[in-house]
């Protein structure tokens, strides 16, 4: 078997999720090649070459890959796809954007967001917002898979793969990057943080999230939110944890003022330890929490911050 992993990066750093996708590739077994498509990405290629288990890195640096436009990235992946039995990428907004294009051009199905590798052709994936887990088997000639990063433990950095330059494919010329607004934060990124503190409708407004930020900074935690808090306009939508937001699985998840709707649980129930702070003792979040504290969050948060 021969596996092609498409790396995720921001042109300067390799995203940690790539190491989890390589871990999924290692479970399938076989030669692992990592493809880096970007602009001025030599240092990213070097980081990828160090990932444990990677045999080869294909590097393609060109203007048309700077913003990972799906039309161009998919064309490049297809140009390099010959000979591979599996093509993997992270189930991030970037991977979800270009991978189905790759699958369709190769005339195969994509298996989306796998959470386990059962064998080289059989995988588990969540359906119905995680209310059911399907085991699916593919008899396509090439398996095109996106991988939920939090379901695989990242590989280490003990590799020494060779780096080869890959020829670019001409810009498809149908799409162009216009602008990007990225949230700037000193806190860790939600999907890779060891501790996540999230607020819900109970926070009442955006200003009150300051209470969460203070606790998060004491813990070195990332800050998330429920869909209710996002819909109410308390915080921007890239903080949303849930079925239609981000999927997180930290060591410790602290849900504050979150009732625990299915939608939210789908995004955090694989966390190792869950803490819920809510004044409603009937809130469904307590059914999944390891430690529940029935308290008014406006009392509990300052107390928690002071005690840490």
């Amino acid at each position: 078997m021969s596996i092609l992993v498409i790396a995720e990066h921001n042109n300067s750093e390799l995203a940690p999720v790539t190491a989890s996708v390589v871990a999924a590739a290692a479970q399938i077994g076989g030669e692992i090649t990592v493809l880096i498509a970007g602009k001025n990405t030599a240092s990213v290629a070097e980081s990828a070459a160090k990932l444990t288990g990677v045999n080869k890195v294909l590097h393609c640096s060109a203007d048309q890959y700077e913003h990972a436009l799906a039309e161009n990235v998919a064309a490049l992946v297809v140009s390099a796809a010959s000979g591979y039995t599996h093509i993997l990428a992270a189930a991030t907004t970037s991977g979800k954007n270009f991978m189905p294009r790759v699958a369709a051009i190769l005339d195969v199905e994509q298996i989306s967001e796998i959470i386990s590798v059962e064998s080289a052709d059989t995988f588990k994936r969540p359906i119905y917002a995680g209310n059911a887990i399907a085991t699916v088997q593919s008899n396509d000639s090439v398996k095109v898979l996106t991988v939920r990063g939090t379901s695989f433990d990242a590989v280490g950095n003990e590799g020494s793969a060779t780096i080869e330059e890959l020829a670019s494919v001409a810009d498809a010329g149908v799409s162009q990057f216009i602008s990007e607004e990225l949230a700037v934060s000193d806190r860790p990124e939600l999907t890779s943080a060891g501790i996540v503190v999230s607020g819900g409708r109970g926070m009442q407004n955006g200003d009150n999230f300051e209470l969460l930020y203070k606790v998060a900074d004491k813990l070195g935690a990332a800050v998330g939110a429920s869909r209710a808090a996002v819909d109410e306009g308390f915080v921007p939508n890239d903080m949303q944890v849930g079925q239609t937001g981000k999927i997180v699985a930290p060591e410790l998840y602290i849900a504050v003022g979150i009732s625990g709707q299915i939608q939210h649980l789908a995004g955090m129930k694989d966390s190792k330890v869950i803490v819920a702070i809510n004044k409603d003792e009937e809130a469904p979040i307590f059914q999944v929490a390891d430690y529940g504290l029935v308290a008014d969050l406006f009392d509990a948060l300052p107390e928690l911050e002071a005690a840490l």
């Binding site: 887990i133 088997q137 396509d140 307590f286 390891d290 529940g292 029935v294 509990a300």
Partner: peptide
């Protein structure tokens, strides 16, 4: 359909844990 569903299972259920009485007890447990 080149992908067949072999099995559909409910997800692993989390057991509800315990209720703690105070922030101090919560920190101690964690």
């Amino acid at each position: 359909n080149t992908v067949s569903t072999l099995k559909v299972e409910p997800p692993a259920q989390r057991e509800a844990g315990i209720k703690v009485g105070s922030v101090a007890e919560l920190i101690d447990k964690l």
